[in-house]
Design a protein around this nucleic acid. Structure first.
Lengths: 133, 133, 133, 133
DNA sequence: GTGGTCTAGACCACC
DNA sequence: GTGGTCTAGACCACA
């Protein structure tokens, strides 16, 4: 599991962390039940504050992607992932709408946009376990 | 051209404004050369701060989607929209990656994701002519 | 709106704050749409850290009892309260079970327990607007 | 006597244990004088730490619900349960207040709340004899 | 050692 | 001025 943060980015660090962990789960690099580093450990490894890591973990916990287990520490949700709620789909659509509009204005066709989405999805989910070609 | 702001959204007002204008251009509701309300006017109509509208207009001007003339006021870029720069594509991919991962984790298939993208694009760009005239 | 914290209590400050605000809403002392003090202001008034207040506000926000409004600041949910979800009822039952068992063991009858619940409910919700008799 | 622990609950394990034992006594599954498993034994059965069980037993002993003998081991208080002290009633009221407010805010009526309390009490205390013998 | 809580003090984006 | 974010450093309950 590789985490890269851009401390200069305008997207907050905790959000980047959330994204990367979600991508890790999506790609299969993080399997259900897998333990995550302790907040302190990860914070130190990444050179950021433990509260920042904590915030990310908590967000993912309340989204149902992580569990805080009394004995095992923080682990990837083992009891089945959240599922496609209406709320999530709405949020997804809202964000896609913004991206689609920006792309369309710059001349990207519907076909190209759909293709790009597909390709990004595939790349994200494909390198399960760390294969890389 | 219809603008709706959600004052309790997490996305800043200026960004919502930018999005809505971009969507207006993408959908054709706003045609190249079309005038936009003056900063003052729009701010009053929407009940928001002058600075906020100004910020949105300036961002769109920087991106090449609007022109700001001292005399004609603000108009939609008449001299051709900006193209698909590498920078834009990179930004697009980065955001799509985050969405794709979140969708994948919740069980959305590649096909469904691509289809959703296509459908959102179509809905965004399709409302041509229905809005204003 | 009167808030009293017990800094020595074992229940965390942020939780006490949450409780008191909920009670304020239940009693009608806080009406939908009413503004709450800014995090800094309330923190100073209560002599606690602004992060602690922030945490309470955020919890209440994600429960749907508060809104963070871009212009009005933090306000009591004006668009209708959350409603009785199954999750809430389950949580309620779980906590009642624990209380009921402790009460029963100490000899409190079913009637007394139900009566106590009713009476506490009434006292909580009754002094709407601050009447007090 | 059946004990179920939720290792990813927010309530600490020792507190869950205390609750379950109290409920066992309330329901009659555990009768005055009945023996409880030794600390070591229960810890092993539940797969938790010795200290945790110990803490629970000690709390219950302090509250007067258990007796700990060097020879007989741990037994349910045979010499009469503690009564309804003012301190207990105060604690009960404080917790009920919090629950009542949360319920009221979500639209639960006084009647429904009292009824829920009564019903939970009854269910808790009613399962007499069905558990163990 | 773990997460949870709290404090103090700082910067920033937004309005 | 507001809330949001981040840091640093501390204590505690839990296991």
């Amino acid at each position: 599991m590789f985490i890269e943060l851009d401390l200069q980015s305008e997207t907050p660090i905790y959000a980047q962390l959330v994204d990367q962990i979600v991508e890790g789960i999506a790609s299969g690099a993080l399997q259900p039940g897998d333990p995550l580093p302790s907040v302190r450990r990860l914070a130190e490894d990444l050179g950021i504050n433990l509260h920042t890591v904590n915030k990310s973990y908590n967000l993912l916990k309340q989204e149902g992607l992580l569990q805080v287990h009394r004995k095992k520490g923080v682990i990837v949700q083992p009891d089945g992932m959240p599922g496609l709620t209406e709320a999530f789909e709405e949020k997804l659509r809202r964000q896609l709408r913004s991206l689609a509009a920006a792309a369309a204005v710059r001349g990207m066709t519907e076909e190209a946009f759909a293709q790009e989405s597909r390709s990004v999805y595939r790349n994200t989910i494909t390198n399960r376990g760390g294969e890389q070609r």
